[in-house]
């Protein structure tokens, strides 16, 4: 039981938190701009590299330099929206999906050009785990990730329900034409969608980079799981995406637990297939996800 919590549940919550933060952006962009953002993983990568670079110049704890990664991700997101997505807004959204596929490649090439294609770690050396109540051994980073994500989730909830901008975003996500009729500034809502989505992505990217290492494919490799999380939560439901992310993270990690015998239920090499199969099941049986998101 203790082993289960230490070695499976907590890592599951950690990767789940990373998925959750990425999935929020994907869900919001899908809800407001009506397309699947293929470049979202690479936005995470950019954010991670931003903080990594800042750490080279200011050698403090990476999380303190999060704003640098967030700033870089926001600028990148607004730039690609302005130059690559906005010109295609009047066309069927599939064109924007294709464009985002191209943007993903652009982000990745830039990462490889500026930061090299190898792995780069935030801190080297073994980190000692924190020991709680003499039984739970949790890595300090994992605790930071989980706690920070919960804080962000609560803040997001209040933002969406209580603030003018949050309600405007939900309105545009519900009925964009009615929002225009009500005189809402849709372009402003779109800009803030990118800002929030990019900020969360950058945070997720830094977490992921600190957990393993920074490399150009960091975000792309997580894209499928994050998309599955967004579908699980219900497209257009940011809080649902957080729940979805945590669930998928836990499912992925606990799938390799020795549930039935001495062997892991799912071979660890196939861990990334878990998210895919969850997504397939959703698309077959409940595409609107847990919280009844948008389908079309």
């Amino acid at each position: 039981m203790i082993d289960f919590i230490n070695l499976y549940l907590v890592p599951g919550l950690t990767i789940g938190s990373i998925y959750a933060l990425g999935a929020v952006g994907i869900s919001m962009i899908f809800g407001i701009l009506r397309f699947a953002h293929f470049a979202h993983g690479d936005l995470m990568t950019i954010g991670g590299y931003g903080v990594l670079t800042a750490v080279w110049f200011i050698p403090v704890h990476p999380l303190l330099l999060l704003p640098f990664g967030i700033a870089l991700a926001i600028v990148s997101a607004l730039a690609v929206d302005q130059f690559f997505y906005k010109p295609l807004r009047k066309l069927p959204t599939i064109y924007t999906v294709i464009a985002s596929f191209g943007v993903a490649l652009i982000f990745r090439s830039l990462a490889q050009l500026f930061w090299s294609s190898g792995n780069q770690v935030f801190t080297s050396g073994v980190r000692m785990p924190v020991v709680l109540f003499d039984t739970f051994r949790i890595s300090e980073l994992h605790m930071q990730v989980i706690v920070l994500t919960l804080i962000i989730a609560v803040a997001l909830h209040f933002f969406l329900t209580r603030s003018k901008l949050g309600r405007a975003m939900r309105a545009v996500s519900d009925e964009p034409e009615l929002a225009a009729v009500a005189g809402l500034d849709t372009e402003r809502v779109i800009r803030w969608t990118w800002v929030i989505g990019a900020s969360m992505a950058a945070t997720a990217g830094v977490f992921a980079g600190m957990d393993t290492s920074m490399h150009p494919n960091l975000g792309w490799n997580l894209l499928l799981a994050m998309f599955a999380a967004a579908v699980l939560g219900g497209i257009g439901k940011p809080m649902g995406a957080i729940a979805g992310g945590l669930l998928i993270g836990i499912a992925e990690e606990t799938a390799t637990f020795t549930w039935l015998s001495d062997e892991p239920l799912i071979s660890p090499s196939y861990k990334s297939a878990v998210a895919f199969f969850i997504m397939v099941a959703l698309l077959l049986f409940r595409p609107q996800g847990l919280f009844k998101g948008r389908l079309l």
Partner: peptide
């Protein structure tokens, strides 16, 4: 002509934003 997932109160509120 309504925002279906927003509450009645929130729908009215949105009417004041512009």
């Amino acid at each position: 002509n309504v925002f279906p997932t927003l509450t009645v109160d929130e729908n009215l509120d949105v009417g004041t934003y512009a």
